[in-house]
Design a protein around this nucleic acid. Structure first.
Length: 565
DNA sequence: CTAGGGTTAG
């Protein structure tokens, strides 16, 4: 950068350079400075501001440069508006692509929407770069409908356009859409590269689809796609989230170079498997390797501590994190609350939440409420519940949690009071939704959905499960009543519990381990946990369940997640 | 000077 500055001052002093060359040199310096790390955007800005009549190249470089720094603001959009207001020079396809990317990075939906109309105004809608930038912008803002619309309007879709759309679907968990697009792309004769495969693998991780992930991995090998740092990280994450931590480790150990994200991925993966010692060991190796941990690394480290009940260590890591100058996020506070709650130190946890410098979110209060429930601290629980309901008055899960706290203490009047309150406010328990992966396709089951073409066969399996679980001395349906439906629907609910439906379908359709993902609004409840253990034993099948918060691997009547309750 | 990629609590 020093050299660049010297060149820059030389250019300014020089009178021998022809003016067009001077402009070109200036533009290059602006571009290079802007593209370099955040420290030098200041220099780029200074150079840019000195230009009397910056040409479109300079504007473009400046817009691009300040969207690529570490913590981008709305500066690129501001610059763009300044350019438009001035009326000259006219923005070109580069300008629009850059500013749309900036909108995608900072999720400036309104602005991007407006700039979208400029695309037609300036007649740039035929530029593949602008088209792809639009798809990317809508996808990043999670307006997948518009992203798809833009994608469909592209007459000649190249590899980048396809990859953008696939990544858009993968990011928001539209697994089947991502994968069918991937197949469609190949049908059109477009060869995927390593960037495409990262998105495809990510789709597999978020669905917990191990078979699918393995298939995609084989595809990568077969088509000799370069497995670079990003793709390896995606694979590590996929194997960890799909239950194959051994494979995850294997890939990680074989990596020639590991950056912060790769290390973090491994640490988080071990943490969700309850392998706290390994996670912490990997963390210290990361430090030995002189790789700087980031916020996400510490989420992994702290959650590993929580899973193992390592209070003092957790607190030490917390101070280490502060020492690194990493500002704690909501997630980190959440981990600390979890650590204290699991150790039964509810008062301390409450104190911690009360003194947080940022306003605690619902997850934090819920963690605390779960702690109160576990410890039977009713009064504290009620105080916490009050705060929770202020933040999330319509989340059925909170009502269920509070009612369970009362039920655990046989306070039936209060239980029915909570139920009445729920009914009066018109809040219904959200339907549970679970998915199971079979033969490369993810099948979703929603509570109460009987439209499945194989409903009859599934029902038979369910009845078989019920029979065998009963023989093992457990009531097969207690969890159904507690969890998914009201008591009046007990009979009808036998076939509707989404997790059980997914397991039954998995047992029916595949011989490999049954991989279930319990979606967003559900957690595996204690009863289900017990029943699934029994199923794994009596059917001699491995069942992998990933709920919203944790990872369970059921083999021969036991669960890997020993610390769960 | 253009467009697409990996890690995020309960």
């Amino acid at each position: 950068m020093t050299t660049l500055r010297q060149i820059h001052s030389h250019v300014l002093r020089s009178n021998t350079l022809p003016s067009f060359f001077k402009a070109f040199a200036l533009f290059q310096i602006v571009g290079f400075c802007a593209l370099s790390s955040s420290g030098d955007i200041k220099h780029a800005r200074a150079v840019f501001n000195k230009l009397k009549n910056p040409d479109i190249f300079s504007w473009n470089s400046m817009i691009r440069g300040c969207s690529l720094i570490q913590n981008p603001s709305n500066e690129p959009i501001y610059l763009y508006y300044k350019l438009i207001k001035r009326g000259y020079p006219n923005p070109n396809s580069y300008t629009l692509a850059f500013v749309l990317k900036a909108c995608a990075i900072i999720l400036a939906f309104k602005e991007g929407w407006q700039i979208h109309s400029h695309v037609y105004k300036f007649g740039l809608d035929s530029s593949p770069f602008v088209q792809t930038a639009l798809v990317n912008f809508y996808a990043k803002c999670e307006d997948i409908g518009n992203a798809r619309r833009m994608f469909d309007e592209i007459p000649e879709r190249n590899l980048i356009a396809w990859s953008t759309m696939i990544s858009g679907y993968a990011r928001i968990g539209f697994v089947n859409e991502a994968l069918s697009l991937f197949r469609e792309m190949q049908k059109e004769g477009i060869k995927p590269d390593e960037v495409t495969m990262v998105s495809v693998i990510s789709a597999c991780s978020s669905s917990g689809a191990l078979d699918l992930g393995r298939w995609v991995h084989a595809f990568i090998d077969k088509h000799i796609i370069k497995v670079d740092l990003e793709l390896t990280t995606a694979l590590i994450n996929m194997y960890a989230r799909c239950g194959c931590i051994e494979k995850s480790r294997e890939l990680f150990d074989a990596m020639p170079k590991k950056d912060t994200k790769a290390w973090s991925s491994m640490i988080v993966g071990l943490a969700i498997h309850g392998l706290a010692e390994d996670a912490l060991d990997v963390f210290s190796k990361m430090l030995e390797a002189n790789v700087k941990p980031n916020q996400i690394t510490f989420i992994g480290v702290l959650s590993a501590c929580a899973h193992r009940g390592l209070v003092t260590q957790g607190q030490n890591y917390w101070s280490n994190m502060i020492g690194y100058g990493i500002e704690p996020l909501m997630e980190h506070y959440g981990c600390m609350v979890d650590i204290l709650c699991r150790a039964g130190r509810i008062e301390e946890a409450y104190e911690f939440v009360e003194t947080m410098p940022i306003s605690p979110n619902a997850i934090i209060w819920r963690t605390l409420l779960m702690g109160c429930k576990k410890k039977g601290m009713l009064e504290k629980g009620e105080i916490v519940a009050k705060r929770l309901f202020e933040l999330e008055p319509v989340n059925a899960e909170n009502y269920v949690l509070l009612s369970n706290m009362y039920a655990a203490n046989s306070m039936w009047e209060k239980v029915s009071w909570v139920r009445k309150k729920m009914k009066d406010s018109g809040i219904k328990a959200l339907p549970g939704c679970s998915s199971v992966e079979i033969g490369g396709f993810v099948h979703e089951f929603v509570v109460g959905d009987r439209s499945h073409p194989e409903a009859k066969e599934i029902r038979e399996v369910l009845q078989d499960i019920a029979e065998r679980v009963r023989q093992a001395g457990h009531d097969p349906w207690t969890s159904v009543v507690l969890h998914d439906v009201g008591d009046e629907e007990k009979e009808g609910a036998l076939c509707e519990h989404s997790e059980r439906l997914a397991i039954a379908y998995g047992l029916l359709k595949t011989k490999s381990p049954v991989v279930i993902r319990v979606a967003k609004n559900l957690r595996v409840c204690p009863d289900c946990h017990e029943v699934t253990k029994i199923i794994s034993k009596v059917y001699e099948r491995e069942i992998i369940v990933r709920d919203r918060v944790r990872f369970h691997r059921f083999v021969d009547g036991a669960c890997s997640c020993k610390d769960y309750w």
